[in-house]
């Protein structure tokens, strides 16, 4: 099945089985291996990427559902020598150990910071309508879909909080 995907600003023509997940399309058909496969069940978050501004688990989404969509993967957020502020903060705070969950963490956090900016409340938000105060508890709650078995969580939270504060 033919699908047109705009990935990191570049249009790609995909011709793959209609059951191909977006994750497998990226990794196996388009040679974009920055997005990782952890569980292939939508439970670990390693495959998180951004579609039209929203984060999704790409292992739970079929590529053919994204005809015409704007997809941003970790490769599109910044490259060595030209890191985004969030990527830079992950380096500064050691927000990883083995690095396998890191692309998912950063894509997830990138979209999450936009959700906060847009005023989306979370399960732990005291006020459902006002501005979100990005406390550690808010970051933890909003990032709990991205597992890190090395448990670099304290540093991940620090990196995200510092980035959010830097953007104020």
């Amino acid at each position: 099945m033919k699908t047109s995907l705009t990935i990191n600003g570049t249009e790609h023509q995909l011709d793959a089985d209609s059951r191909t997940t977006l994750l497998d399309a990226l990794r196996n058909h388009l040679d974009l291996t920055g997005t990782k496969k952890g569980c292939d069940h939508g439970q670990c978050g390693a495959c998180t990427l951004i579609v039209n501004g929203r984060r999704i688990n790409s292992c739970l989404s079929l590529a053919c559902m994204h005809d015409g969509d704007e997809i941003t993967t970790i490769e599109g957020l910044g490259q060595p020598g030209n890191l985004s502020d969030l990527q830079d903060a992950f380096v500064k705070h050691d927000g990883f150990q083995c690095g396998y969950c890191t692309p998912g963490q950063i894509c997830s956090a990138t979209a999450m910071l936009q959700e906060v900016k847009d005023g989306w409340p979370s399960h732990v938000s005291a006020d459902l309508t006002g501005d979100v105060d990005l406390t550690n508890a808010e970051i933890s709650e909003r990032m709990s879909g991205n597992l890190c078995r090395c448990a670099a969580y304290p540093n991940i939270v620090d990196a995200i909080r510092e980035t959010a504060e830097g953007r104020k």
């Binding site: 291996t33 490259q79 990527q87 500064k92 050691d94 690095g99």
Partner: peptide, 21 residues
Amino acid sequence: LPHDSAALHVTGTARYIDDLP
């Protein structure tokens, strides 16, 4: 000092077995 592959990890360019061409 940060991890040796820090810049690669945060950009998805650190290769694991399944990423090797």
